[in-house]
Every structure is written in C-alpha cells, then in structure tokens.
Amino acid sequence: MDMRAHDTPVATLADLLPGQHATITGLSGESELRTRLQSLGLRPGRRVTVVRRSRFGGPIQIRLGTSDLLIRPQQARTIFIK
C-alpha cells in the first residue's frame, strides 16, 4: 500500500485530535530519539490515543496502554501512524 499514490502525506502522531487513536507504523527520527521513544513504549504495532493537546502548540498528552506521556509536536511528527 503506497500512500503517496493518493497524494496524501503520511499521517503522524501530531495530526491526531484529542480522543482519536491510531496504530504506530514507524519512527523517522534520528537514532537517539528513536531509542528513547521505543524504551517509552512508542514502537510499531502499539496503539496510541491522544488524550489532550495543550494550547499554543505545546505538548501533546498521549496514552499507551497504562502509561500517559507528554510529547512535543516536533517529536510527535516523527511518529508515523495509521
């Protein structure tokens, strides 16, 4: 399945609205960031829900299983979802 065929950009975690959930498909950040995200449980195949977003482009609160995490939009954009 080639997403580019439909000319839609690949969706990332930063695109989700509060209450929406998705499955992680890949990580595109540099290796240090990827390592950190994976050890926090953000790895392909995991389901993730956006709980809330703070105002003025601040961090996003996400829920992974039983853990809640804060992530800035900048890093959320490196996490591909479907």
Partner: peptide, 10 residues
C-alpha cells in the same frame, strides 16, 4: 541539550 521533552504523566 539534545533531550526532547518526553515526560511521563503519572
């Protein structure tokens, strides 16, 4: 600092 803000919300 290279560290991104990735905090747990306990």
């Amino acid at each position: 600092h290279a560290e991104p803000l990735l905090l747990e919300l306990p």
